[in-house]
Simulated scan of single mutants.
Amino acid sequence: MMEHIFIPGKNPALPPLVLLHGTGGDEHSLLQIAELIAPDAAVLAFRGDVPEQGANRFFTRYMDGSFDLESLAEKTEQLMVQTAKLATEYDFRLENAIAVGYSNGANIAANAILTREDGFRKAILFHAMPSGAAMPDFSLASATLFFDGRCK
């Protein structure tokens, strides 16, 4: 189970934010961003559990920087299972959550969006990169996604 923190929101009507840091970050790295995005929303922030030369990541990559797609798939599954369990524990609806990811965290969030019908449907992703995985075989019409300031 990945380390995480949960901060209850002051306004339970707001969608909770799921924070996913970049390489070398931790569960505290995006808290200031969350405060800017929605200061009264609940926050669930994870620490990636894959070490890379002492830096936290959410999934492995190869020496050339390309993604290990097997690790990405496995870790995306683990992230979504753990997020669903914690949503129940902390009493919020996963389908309302907004993933906020930076770099490595944005990449795993994007993979959850593109590969899982029960993945995130709302996201703010900074510096996400294409994984090379196949596109989804389900509709993303209801998804609201912001990539580096652009809404899709």
Rank of each mutant, 00 (worst) to 15 (best):
A134H: 07
L114F: 15
A123M: 04
L114P: 11
P16T: 06
H4W: 11
N104A: 11
H28Y: 09
Q82R: 07
S29G: 00
K122A: 11
T88R: 15
S66L: 10
H4P: 11
N11L: 03
A128V: 12
V18I: 09
L30H: 03
Y90R: 13
E77N: 15
E3G: 13
M63P: 01
F59V: 07
I124Y: 07
G119Y: 04
S29Y: 01
E52N: 05
G101I: 05
A99Y: 01
H127Y: 13
Q53Y: 01
H4E: 05
A84H: 11
G132H: 02
L36M: 10
S131Y: 05
A42K: 01
E77Q: 15
L79P: 09
I37C: 04
E3M: 13
P12Q: 03
F146R: 00
T76S: 14
L125E: 02
N11D: 07
D40N: 04
L44Y: 03
P130S: 07
T88P: 00
V50F: 07
T115F: 12
A38F: 03
P16F: 05
A42L: 00
Q82M: 10
F92H: 10
E70D: 12
R121Q: 12
P51L: 04
L145N: 04
F147V: 02
G149D: 01
N96L: 15
L86I: 14
M129P: 05
E27A: 09
L44K: 02
S139C: 02
E74Y: 10
L94G: 06
D118E: 12
Y62R: 13
F120N: 00
N11I: 00
P51K: 02
A45N: 01
M63D: 11
R93L: 14
I7P: 07
S66E: 11
N111Q: 15
A34D: 05
H4M: 08
E89H: 15
A133R: 04
M2D: 13
S131D: 07
A38N: 01
A133K: 06
A55H: 05
Y62G: 08
R93Q: 15
A112E: 06
E35C: 01
N104Y: 03
A45H: 01
A38I: 00
F67I: 07
Y90M: 14
R150P: 01
I5N: 13
Y62K: 13
M135L: 12
M135D: 13
G119L: 05
K10L: 08
E27K: 10
G105C: 08
V100G: 06
A141K: 10
E95N: 14
S103K: 12
E3Y: 10
I33N: 10
M135E: 12
S142N: 13
T88L: 14
H21G: 00
D64V: 13
R61T: 14
E52T: 06
A55F: 02
R47K: 11
T83K: 06
D49W: 09
Y62A: 09
F126P: 04
M129G: 03
G105M: 06
G65N: 12
R57T: 08
A84G: 10
